Amino acid sequence: MTTTITLNNGVTMPALGLGVFQTPPEQTVAAVQTALEVGYRHIDTAAAYGNEREVGEAIRRSGIDRDDIFIETKVWVTDYGYDQTLHAFDKSARKLGVDRIDLLILHQALPAHFDRTVAAYQALEKLLADGKVRAIGVSNFLPIRLDELTARTDIVPAVNQIELHPYNIRPQSQAANAKHGILTQAWAPIGGIRHYSGSPQTPLTDPVITAIGDQYGKTTAQVMLRWHLQQSRSAIPKSVRAERITENFDVFDFHLTDDELARIDALHIGDTMNPDEMDFLSFDITVPEA
Rank of each mutant, 00 (worst) to 15 (best):
Ala135Ile: 06
Val29Gln: 05
Tyr49Lys: 05
Tyr49Arg: 03
Leu127Ile: 11
Pro111Thr: 13
Leu106Phe: 09
Asp68Gly: 10
Asp65Tyr: 00
Glu52Tyr: 07
Leu146Thr: 08
Ala119Ile: 04
Ile43Lys: 07
His113Phe: 14
Gln33Asn: 15
Ile101His: 05
Glu26Gln: 14
Leu124Val: 11
Gly131Met: 11
Val138Arg: 02
Thr85Leu: 04
Val77Cys: 14
Arg41Thr: 06
Leu96His: 05
Glu148His: 13
Leu124Pro: 02
Thr153Ser: 12
Ala151Pro: 01
Leu149Gln: 02
Gly81Thr: 03
Asp79Pro: 05
Asn140Phe: 00
Ala93Thr: 09
Lys74Trp: 01
Gly39Leu: 05
Ile64Asn: 07
Thr45Lys: 00
Ala112Gln: 15
Thr73Asn: 06
Ala120Pro: 09
Lys91Asp: 13
Arg116Glu: 15
His113Lys: 14
Ile71Trp: 04
Ile155Asn: 06
Arg152Phe: 04
Gln33Phe: 02
Asp102His: 06
Leu142Trp: 09
Ile43Gly: 08
Asp147Glu: 14
Val98Ile: 15
Lys126Thr: 14
Gly39His: 09
Gly97Leu: 04
Val29Ala: 06
Leu86Trp: 09
Ala129Tyr: 03
Leu146Glu: 04
Ala46Asp: 11
Phe114Gln: 10
Leu36Ile: 03
Leu124Glu: 01
Ala129Asn: 13
Gln27Cys: 01
Thr117Ile: 07
Leu124Ser: 07
Gln108Cys: 13
Glu148Thr: 14
Leu146Ser: 05
